[in-house]
Amino acid sequence: MSTETETGVEDGNTLFSDIDLSWEHRKNELFRWLLIAASLFGVVMLALLLFDVVTDFYTGLTEFNISLYEFFTQDGSQEETRAGFKGAVIASIMLMIMTAVLAFFVGVGSAIYLEEYAPDSRITRLIEANLANLAGVPSIVYGLLALAAVVNGIGIGPILIAGAVALGLLVMPIIIVSTQEALRAVPDSVRNGSYATGATKWQTIRRVVLPAAIPGIMTGTILALARAIGETAPLIMVGALFVNRTPSGPTDRFSAMPTQIYNWAAQPSEHFIHLAAVGIVVLLSFLFVMNGVAIYIRHRYETEV
């Protein structure tokens, strides 16, 4: 039964000699390195960007004598040595809260309707398709909408509420999509268990589905707000520029963190450029914390289940 070495047509050493794969493997290796180089491009650019911001932040503090204390306690100013970030930070925080209030309930409500109630009808499909399209509308267009409809249409002027409307509409599709995903992740067995006890659909959603989905909804909402806090163009369209003082309330004029950074970055003065770098570090810190909270919620939820 076993192969005799002398009868074997090919022995081990010559077995694959008719197949020359050296070129193919070299081609594969070359391709692999090309892919690695391409993948590293994004990473290198990220590193460069962060490096540039951090070094400008550092020289801002050392060479341009930007005091972090004054930076956080003074309002913006036309004079570079007196310019601070306080008004912008407070405006951004107020903007965040108002955006959350405006977008959260409508966004979560839309998602519940689409996931739990909506029949498979043409209207539902229209809403879904429209949602995908809204997510692709440039942010500056939301600014135009708020400018024409709210700032000048209703006539409330370039105040925080107008900015919050623009940002709220902008992040609504993001909140809806992430809420839909969170609702979808709740298993049907949970719903059926509730229906079997005689609960109505709404009771089931309110008492069973929403509590189970809330960590996912919160994560999605925080990420959406993190997107909103860095948005600049809609606020510029609304008219949030050239305001230096701290807003006194939702009906006051304002300039938020990103618009203040733009204002500084667009100045020819080196001092202003470095003020912008310090502002960016503050803005990125906000994003870092918000993303951290979102990841924490997601992680805790995952480990519980």
């Binding site: 022995d11 050493n13 077995l15 197949i19």
Partner: peptide, 12 residues
């Protein structure tokens, strides 16, 4: 495979 261990180092 034909007396050659396919898990040998040199087998591709």
């Amino acid at each position: 495979f034909r007396s050659k261990n396919v898990y040998d180092e040199d087998v591709d």
